[in-house]
Amino acid sequence: MTTTPAIAARELTRTFGDFVAVDHISFDVQPGEVFGFLGANGAGKTTAIRMLTGLLAPTSGSATVAGYDISREGEDVKRSIGYMSQKFSLYEDLTVSENIRLYGGIYDLSSGEIADRMRRILTRLGLEHAARSLVRDIPLGWKQKLAFSVALLHEPRVVFLDEPTSGVDPITRRQFWELIYETARGGTTVLVTTHYMDEAEYCDRISIMVAGRIAAIGTPAELKANAGVASIDELFVRLARPAASVA
C-alpha cells in the first residue's frame, strides 16, 4: 500500500552567507513512523527542523509536511504539525490548565474540546491534582510530558520533538518514550532529535547528519549491519569523526 509520506524532503538546502547549514538533504518519513534525527551539535538538525516547521525559509529545494508544501502552503502545514522545543514551550508562570487552555485557543479548539482533552491529558499523566499548580512548581519530568501532550493537543498529523529528553533521569526518559510509541501507534508521525544514542535504537528509522548532509539513513538494525558495528553509538562516532577533524 502506498501512502503520501508524512514528511518528504527533496534537496532541501539552507545557507547563511557562505555557510551551508543544510546541504541538499532528501528523505521520506512514513505516517506513524518514529523517525530519529541524529547529528552532532552544528550538524544542521535544528536548521532542518526549523525549515520543516515553517520557522525558516529554505534557500533551495522543497519539502512537504502532511502533504502540504512548506513554501506555498505554510498555513496548512502549521495546522497539521505539533512542535516541542528543547525548552518545553510552556509558560512557567501559568498553571497547568491555563497552559492547556491557551494552546487550545491558539489552535482554535472549541471550549468543549479543550475541556475534554484537558481531562484526558491530566488523567493520563496523573496530574489531576496539579491542574492549578504553576508549571514552574512541577518537576522537570512532568513538565516534559506535559509539553509533549500540549504539542499534541490539536491532534497534529506530524509532531517535531527537538531534544525532548535532555536533562532528565533515565526512568523519566523511558516513560517519555512510551508516550512517543503510544502517539505513533495512534497514527501520528514523530520526528525526534536526540543526543542519546540508546534512544536512537528505539526509533523505527534514523538519519545521521554530518556537516549539513545525511551520512546514513535506515533502520537501526540495517545501519549497524551495513557498517559492521555493534551499536549506533559506534557508528555515530565513526561517521562524525572525519567531519570533526576536517573542521
Binding site: G54, L55, K78, R79, I81, Y83, K87, S89, I106, Y107
Partner: peptide
C-alpha cells in the same frame, strides 16, 4: 529566552 516564542511562531497565529 524561554523558547515559547517558537511555539507561538509555529502555531497558526
Amino acid at each position: 529566552e524561554t523558547g515559547t516564542m517558537e511555539s507561538l511562531l509555529v502555531s497558526p497565529l
